[in-house]
């Protein structure tokens, strides 16, 4: 595995500062309904939003819709942003809220038997072992509560520290710990019935898969 893929990224620093526009310019442009500001916002923050949604949902087939919803919601509610300097954390908040709503809606649909699980898109067809491991992990993660799933994936897949997870989810450190504890119990319960994940837990060696 390429360890650089997993480098911790600052949660609240979305923007790449080398692309010209600053937060103030973007926010004032968005408030003036300037499409160029909307494009600048997307260009500067899309990489991080893509990454966040991709890692939390796990190469989901509704990934594109979620990212688009995030930006459409951001454009429509920019007037509610009080401090332009908080643009980055505000966008992270919108992203995680959008993801949480999606996960809740899915849980509800599943409860009424309306959603059939579909195989996710192929994202790493050259490495079928890891793809299988990934799909198994997310199959278990889907059984967690939405807030727990978000905390779990941010902590372990995206590699955030506990404090960063708390900051991103806008909750206390204690709440994050409680959510992670709950998520671990669910993970252990279901992973033991899965040959791939069970061997991981026993050995922690990727080569066994």
């Amino acid at each position: 595995m390429n360890s650089s893929e997993h480098n911790k990224a600052p949660v609240l620093k979305l923007m790449d500062s080398g692309r010209g526009f600053g937060n103030l310019q973007i926010v004032s442009g968005l408030r003036r309904k300037d499409p160029e500001a909307a494009i600048a916002l997307y260009e500067r923050s899309s990489d991080r939003i893509h990454r966040l949604v991709w890692r939390v949902l796990g190469a989901d087939d509704e990934h594109d819709d979620v990212v688009q919803q995030v930006f459409v919601h951001a454009l429509g509610s920019i007037d509610r942003l009080r401090d332009p300097n908080a643009l980055d954390s505000w966008l992270v908040g919108i992203t995680l809220n959008t993801v949480r709503k999606l996960l809740r809606a899915r849980k509800l649909r599943r409860a009424f038997g309306q959603r059939k699980d579909r195989p996710g898109p192929t994202f790493n067809k050259h490495d079928p072992d890891r793809q299988l491991l990934t799909s198994r992990l997310y199959a278990v993660v889907e059984r967690m509560r939405p807030v727990d799933q978000i905390s779990f994936t941010l902590r372990f897949v995206e590699g955030y520290a506990l404090g960063e997870v708390a900051c991103a989810c806008d909750c206390s450190l204690t709440t994050v710990k409680r959510r992670l504890s709950r998520a671990k119990k669910i993970f252990l319960k279901h992973a033991q019935n899965d040959q791939i994940l069970a061997s991981w837990i026993e050995s922690g060696d990727s080569c066994k898969t």
Binding site: M1, H50, V157
Partner: peptide, 27 residues
């Protein structure tokens, strides 16, 4: 620690987002 290791493996497999063609279409 096991979950951190598993997460690193999964993160490496997932990559950082959809492929370039999909991103271009989204853009």
């Amino acid at each position: 620690k096991t979950l951190e290791q598993l997460g690193r493996e999964v993160a490496g497999s997932l990559g950082t987002g959809p492929d370039a063609a999909r991103r271009e279409a989204m853009s």
